[in-house]
């Protein structure tokens, strides 16, 4: 076992090579899985908040316009 760990005197070169490779692969896997579960959570929260059926969108801007239109014309007439 000790002979194996010693790597013929090249232990300081062989083991860091394997160690860094393993470290990179494990770290990237963990961080990717972490991001995935975070996105899943965010998505679930947003889906829960979303109203079940969207209200008809065309009605809103039309009701808003008549309110702003008179004030605009009033400003224009006062400035001229």
């Amino acid at each position: 076992m000790e002979e194996f760990l010693n790597m013929g005197g090249y232990a300081v070169y062989v083991w860091p090579s394997y160690g860094l490779t393993a470290l990179f692969m494990i770290a990237l896997t963990l961080s990717s899985l972490h991001t995935l579960s975070k996105r899943k959570r965010q998505l679930a929260e947003l889906e829960a908040k979303r109203p079940p059926r969207r209200a008809p969108r065309t009605a809103q801007p039309q009701t808003a316009q008549p309110q702003t239109a008179p004030t605009q014309t009033a400003q224009e007439s006062s400035s001229s």
């Binding site: 995935l36 996105r39 947003l46 979303r50």
Partner: peptide, 16 residues
């Protein structure tokens, strides 16, 4: 795994 994350991120952006 990373592409799934990325697609979900796009959906999160669209929904918000």
């Amino acid at each position: 795994v990373r592409m799934k994350s990325e697609l979900m991120a796009a959906r999160v952006r669209a929904l918000s």
